[in-house]
């Protein structure tokens, strides 16, 4: 591990020194040893502030949206999930590949339950790779939890989600952290139009949750950030996984963000598509 940190820091230092990138997004230390925070390294002499450990949980890619027209390339340290987030945002025309310099780093899973089912620990796209790729594993239980949940009756399911959305505090952390939630202006922020009120009640919270799940729909990269950041512990991935499970059932094996060109499944039309719901 320590040699990987050295390789990471020296790579970043060099990229900043030779002007390849304007700054690098990675992880830095906090007050607590089991917690890191996203950092933005602009000076070569600050490269030593980068850390790489079991607690590098935050997604790095979405911060690139804060800087859509960078003077120099933005360096982003990316794990497998972050690389899918980059693909996601390039495919959605939110980022340009030529504005990014991707520092890939194979990931061995972090302090985050979502990592246990990860099928893409190695970055799928990068300009430079730190360390050596790790072994990938297919997760046979990818939709196990959703399949179990589907067995509940409609009333039981409603009851479950009602209790969950009664907790929602409308902080929009799930949306703001999500690489697929990259609309320039979210429908929920169009208060003057009035799609989504600011009042907190079961209906309004559920409308938000469902609308977001559908908007993310076939674009979810399964990074689990929505669920990690939710201060009220809502199992948000259960909704997005349900969408993905249905898509898999209807259209065959499907994962998002594996490259930056494949159209998303709900964004294309094929005469062979199943249409029994029409």
């Amino acid at each position: 591990m320590s040699s990987i940190i050295e390789e990471l820091q020296s790579t970043v230092k060099k990229l900043l020194e030779d002007g390849t990138v304007g700054y690098v997004i990675g992880w830095g230390a906090t007050r607590f040893p089991d917690r890191t925070t996203p950092v933005f390294i602009t000076r070569p002499e600050d490269a030593h502030k980068l850390v790489w450990n079991h607690y590098c949980v935050n997604g790095t890619a979405k911060y690139a949206l804060d800087d859509r027209y960078p003077e120099k390339k933005i360096g982003i340290i990316i794990r497998g999930c972050d690389s899918r987030a980059v693909n996601r945002m390039i495919q959605d025309n939110q980022l340009k590949r030529e504005n990014l310099y991707l520092i890939g780093i194979p990931c061995d899973g972090k302090e985050n339950p979502v990592c246990e089912g990860c099928q893409h620990k190695n970055p799928l796209v990068y300009d430079v790779l730190i360390g050596t790729p790790v072994e990938e594993k297919i997760n046979p239980d990818r939709f196990k939890e959703v399949a179990e949940f589907e067995k509940l009756s409609q009333d039981e399911k409603y009851e479950y989600w009602a209790k969950q959305y009664d907790k929602c505090i409308h902080c929009y952390a799930c949306r703001n952290v999500c690489p697929a939630c990259n609309c320039k202006e979210c429908y929920a922020d169009q208060y003057r139009v009035g799609w989504q009120g600011k009042q907190n009640n079961r209906n309004s919270n559920q409308v938000y949750g469902l609308t977001r799940a559908f908007h993310v729909g076939d674009r979810c990269i399964e990074c689990g950030e929505c669920e990690r950041v939710c201060p009220m512990g809502l199992p948000i991935m259960r909704q997005t996984k349900k969408m993905l499970k249905d898509i898999n059932d209807l259209f065959g094996d499907y994962e998002c963000g594996l490259n930056d060109s494949r159209p998303h499944v709900l964004g294309e039309f094929d005469l062979q598509d199943r249409d029994e719901f029409m």
């Binding site: 996203p38 933005f40 911060y63 804060d66 505090i169 409308h170 902080c171 929009y172 950041v229 201060p231």
Partner: peptide, 16 residues
């Protein structure tokens, strides 16, 4: 410039 960059602009801090 330094301390605000990691913010994702959600309302968690204000609501808790």
């Amino acid at each position: 410039d330094e301390v605000t960059r990691a913010c994702i602009g959600c309302a968690t801090c204000t609501y808790v």
